[in-house]
Design a protein around this nucleic acid. Structure first.
Lengths: 206, 206, 206, 206
DNA sequence: GATGAATGAGGGTTCATTCAT
DNA sequence: TATGAATGAACCCTCATTCAT
């Protein structure tokens, strides 16, 4: 990557960061493009050199952040090898951990995610789909391994798990929960979900 | 209730219905007041005789519909007496059932709920809190009865359950799921959540 | 006048009174018809049984009040017979006196008078013309009697005198001047105007 | 002043000119912002880059025009040195002269001035106060010089003089008086006011 | 590429007026 | 006659987007 490209990427990044901050604070519809520009330290017009319009900025922000989360998650999960349960618990923890590590991102995702796929016509939010897929594959892995109940639809249950986590994350974020509280609550939710997923005969194992 | 009062309530209802339809279709921010008026068959200005402004209309709509849901739920649950498990399962079913019975309401709640409580200034959405309370009390009841795990925080878990259901409801609604699919998926989610909540020694009972 | 007529006039009067109060307080354009109705203790629609529209109400109010002032002035002036100077001084005093006796009317006239004849198309404000005529006739009387300078155009000078008084009245009204201050200032203005009008050879007489 | 600044000032001036024209024609409340924009040859939104809102535009217009009048007046008066009488007469003439030179400004000031200071919240119209002060100081100067009556309150009398002139100006403007008529009437009013102000023993001097 | 002044379509809200009761 | 709920045209202002510099 040469110098010009680096500069370009830097400006793009600053705009995305500014947008995240602004959207988290006031929501998409109540954030003015000029506010994002100010936050990013660029002129209003500059934003349109990097993004087609305000909608595109929102979508790009989602994709950018989800990509980051997914990469991180995949790296972490890879280290845990075949331990499905450990991987599942880790996902729960990572998700909740956002409340502490990236509160703005947490607010943004929990609040704007649903809107986005609704109002942006035809936008299916593929990155979010990828995120859900990780959950789904984990559940399928558990089912193949015989530790997770086979009577549950992985697509459905991955949604349910995501919903549970997302709602919990929303609360943790809005209440500005500290690390200890996040750890505790993540553990409880993980415990409940895991128990709900486990094949009955091995529940004692938990 | 006299004639004038009846007429007034009827018009208010028509406006709320129009707003629900419009909000479900395009979301709060993309719905024009004039569209709601048209949907309701009243003049634009009439809306302001019944609601302070567009925000107030959104809030009132939430309260109205949550009240309806809560009443209905309480009536149903009362019939189930002390059977905590049955009551819990019924809540799951009722929630998912919205996708079939009131798809517009389902879309509205799943998509607009989070936005509203965050961006409508000062609004704490008490009715939604009431709804969560029903979940919470049910979990506490189960804990007192010794059938639900005592190591789980009812406030936290009620949130998690709501989140799981809400996400599932969103999918059922958007995919225009039919009654059979809704029944099946509600049963699965109920089964998972219940197993996750049950005291370990009685899990076989499920 | 029979009972029905009396009642009608009473309601018309209440509306005019309410309008005066409201217009004096907030001005014509910032006063809502509904506020006038409330002030008058009638329904909004009732106003339109007595006046064609809001403009007509303003005009009618002018005419009504100017008529009252003119009648009163004529009665007073009649008592002063041929004493032109005394009559002129009395007019000055009566005009300023409004600040004490009818502060709302004073505010209304000083502030709304000019607007009214401008914005209401084709309205020449004949009653205001009548009021000016009294000044004018007094000046002409003085000229004929040889005590007022003959080199001044009575129409022009009556305007100038009115303008001077009106501006002074505005200040007296807005500063909520008491009787003593009003008396003092009216006397000063009268003295200046009279001296300005007097035939030079008889100025010592003042 | 650089180019950008010059362009900005030019646009601001065009908006003020457009506003003056429009306000003079239809009055503040009957003038739409879009009409001003059209008159100024700018987009509606542009007005809000230069003025906070419609009220602010009104206020700014007053300040701008009063400033212009005051500067001009001060320049002229400075040339007349210590001749109080000449200066007083000049003020009268300049004021009336507006009817010929700046009829729109004349209409605007005579008709909108009172409204504005009353209904534009918090606005005390300091420039108008400055204008009155010129009158007042002139009267005080005459009193100190022994040529004006000492028994008159300069603040009161400056108001009265302004009122007289303003009313005369209004008539001259609305009747579209020509230069000759304006000269004649200004002279008459000046003569009357001066005689009214002069110390009695020197009235023959006029 | 970067700027930010300018644009102008759009929409929430007001309020004078009407009319069914 | 009186009411006041309903109307809907009107209007100020916002703000995403453009484009001359």
């Amino acid at each position: 990557m040469n110098h010009a490209e680096k500069k370009r990427n830097d400006k793009r990044k600053r705009i995305l960061d500014g947008a995240l901050k602004a959207f988290a604070l006031k929501g998409f519809y109540n954030t003015k493009v000029s506010e994002i520009a100010q936050e990013a330290g660029v002129a209003d017009g500059t934003i349109y050199l990097y993004f087609k319009n305000k909608d595109d900025l929102l979508i790009s922000l989602f994709e950018d952040r989800m990509e980051w989360i997914i990469e991180r998650l995949n790296t972490d999960l890879a280290k845990l090898g075949n331990d499905t349960l450990a991987k599942f618990r880790h996902m729960v923890i990572i998700h909740c951990q956002l409340a502490v590590e990236e509160p703005q991102l947490a607010e943004f995702i929990t609040i704007e995610l649903r809107q986005s796929s609704k109002f942006v016509k035809e936008y299916k939010n593929p990155k979010f789909g990828d995120y859900l897929k990780i959950f789904q594959h984990l559940i399928e892995e558990g089912q193949r391994g015989g530790i997770f109940r086979a009577d549950l639809d992985p697509r459905l249950i991955s949604r349910a798990c995501f919903g549970a986590l997302d709602e919990v994350l929303l609360q943790l974020t809005l209440s500005r929960a500290g690390q200890a509280e996040v750890d505790d609550k993540a553990a409880q939710v993980a415990s409940m979900l895991v128990q709900g997923l486990l094949e009955r005969k091995i529940i004692d194992a938990d």
